[in-house]
Amino acid sequence: MSILEVKNIKKSFGKTEVLKDVSFTLEEGEVLSIIGSSGSGKTTILRCINQLETADSGFIKVNGEVFFDGENRPKKEDPKEKRRKQLLVGLVFQNFNLFPQYNVLENVTLAAKLQATELPEYKENKVKINAEIDEKAKDILGKVGLLDKLNNYPCELSGGQQQRVSIARALILEPKILFFDEPTSALDPELTGEILKVIKSLAEEKVTMVIVTHEMSFAKAVSSKVIFMDNGVIEEEGTPEEVFDNPKSHRTKEFISKFDD
């Protein structure tokens, strides 16, 4: 069973048809890169899967759970249920969206600590539970190389460090799939490397990921599967070798040749 199933997703904003019948699947442990020119709908498909946007029709299933079914929409979705599903996926934003009033450690632990308050044993074990969350956060922050910044505020960090915090913030909730929307686009070129390194190490740990990116050589190196989107449709799909080295579609060839240098 695929961990992510996206079937016939359509989405318009007013009169602009942004997604015109998008379908793909992803297996556990795979890394999917989505490439394509600006405005082709990459962000929109990510937002539809992450429930930030509701598709017009189609079907989305994550880890066996129906996230969206255009044929069978619940009249009023239980917010608690929606939040439970939300935790199956994680999203890293292009511009980080860290919480400015919290330091690095607090940014990473906030959501987990709020989750924990809903545990039945929270009242008795409050201190212990929060301490465990702090430990876990430090573990993850260690992995992304930020142990020395625990008490710094986002405004005191470089873009690359902020993005690493936001990755840690998503990881602590142990999502089944982690989505990245152009995680390096807001960064100075010399800072993209540190983010790509973190994503690479996650790929080695078999974290299932979907990455929208303009970093072609990175996409080629890290992904098990590549999708080229153009104008709201999947123009080409395959292994990195197939898409980058032997593109079948003329549009794909054209797009990829722009990055050759």
Binding site: L52, R83, Q86, V89, N97, L98, F99, L110, S166
Partner: peptide, 27 residues
């Protein structure tokens, strides 16, 4: 306050009231 702050809270599974109290209010 930017929409991204709400969305970040939302994708981290927070409730609307948690997002307002814990993220938006102080800003």
């Amino acid at each position: 306050i930017s929409k991204g702050q709400y969305e970040a809270g939302y994708v981290l599974g927070m409730t609307k009231s948690q997002i307002f109290r814990k993220i938006i209010l102080k800003q």
